[in-house]
Simulated assay, not measured.
Amino acid sequence: MIELNLEFSEDNMAANMQIAIDGPASAGKSTVAKLVAKKLNYVYCDTGAMYRAVTFAALQRKVALDNDQALKEMLTDFDLKFVPADPEQLVLVNGQDITRQIRSTEVTNQVSLVSAQPSVRQEMTKRQQEIAASGAIVMDGRDIGTTVLPDAEVKIFLIASVHERAVRRYKENVKKGMATDLAVLEQEIKARDYKDSHREISPLTQAQDAVLVDTTSLNIDEVVEKILKIINQHEKY
């Protein structure tokens, strides 16, 4: 099961929309989605953290990352919770706080393999759809607009150059005190892009009705403002 222990105001809930934000690694999805959700007083769901949590749990329990059946069995005892905290919400699996661990290089480099497994994809999609059922949610990931929430009222597809995304990841790692190399990060991002866009189940692709937003030359506030304008335009029609 999964719980979102998040509180939000009903002052700005009239539209009750589902907002899907997709895009490749380090395009700024999570950061932007959190801010958009806060502006709208909507719930935010980080689906990437869900797949990372599954990956970390599999590594921790020494479950083969390409063994679909073994991962399916593991998920029968996989209680995932998002708990509000400052500066970021916590990710708990079976009561263990794994917020920091799921951002490790090992998890980052293996999550595409785990998320490509049919049973994992099916279970996480089901849980995500349950979370979004009541609307008033901003959800980001790789296949939200195409598979998880195909009827979402607003769909955004964020992109940025590989170099820009590597620089962003480099700065994040330095801030966290993690050893990193910009050239290596670029290669890892390219490799993950390929894996995400070429997997058989729910590959990374832009939904036909999604609005493309290139964040390469934009700062976070500018991206948020652009998305809010897109949402406001939808509400007018």
Rank of each mutant, 00 (worst) to 15 (best):
I227K: 10
K236L: 04
A53Y: 02
R100E: 02
R52V: 07
L182W: 06
A70Y: 07
E200D: 11
A20E: 00
Q69K: 15
L113D: 00
V120T: 05
K126Y: 10
V36Q: 02
F157T: 14
M74T: 05
L75K: 13
M13P: 00
T125S: 12
I21Q: 02
A14N: 11
T108V: 01
A49G: 01
P84L: 13
E225C: 01
M74F: 07
A183V: 11
A64M: 12
A152I: 04
K229F: 06
Q206P: 00
D214E: 07
L6D: 05
K190N: 11
F8D: 00
A152M: 08
V174A: 09
R127H: 10
Q122K: 13
Y237C: 00
V63A: 05
K38P: 00
M124Y: 04
S112N: 06
A37G: 01
M74L: 15
P203C: 08
A207S: 12
F82T: 14
E10W: 12
S104Y: 03
K171Q: 15
A166E: 10
T180I: 01
Q187I: 00
D86I: 14
H163S: 14
K229H: 10
T205E: 13
I189S: 03
V213N: 04
Q187C: 00
E235L: 14
D221E: 15
T216V: 04
Q208A: 15
K226V: 08
D86M: 13
P118V: 07
Q129M: 11
H234F: 10
L182K: 03
A15E: 02
I231F: 05
L92F: 08
K38N: 11
M124E: 01
E225Q: 13
K171F: 03
F157S: 12
I201N: 03
L4R: 12
A58H: 10
T180Y: 07
I201P: 00
N41E: 09
K155A: 04
I21N: 02
I220W: 01
L90N: 03
F157W: 14
V167S: 04
M1F: 09
V107P: 07
Q101E: 14
N16E: 06
Q128H: 01
M17G: 08
K175R: 05
E106C: 11
K229C: 01
I144W: 08
L71D: 00
R121Q: 09
Q117I: 01
Q233T: 14
T125E: 05
K72H: 14
I159K: 10
V114K: 12
D68K: 13
I227G: 05
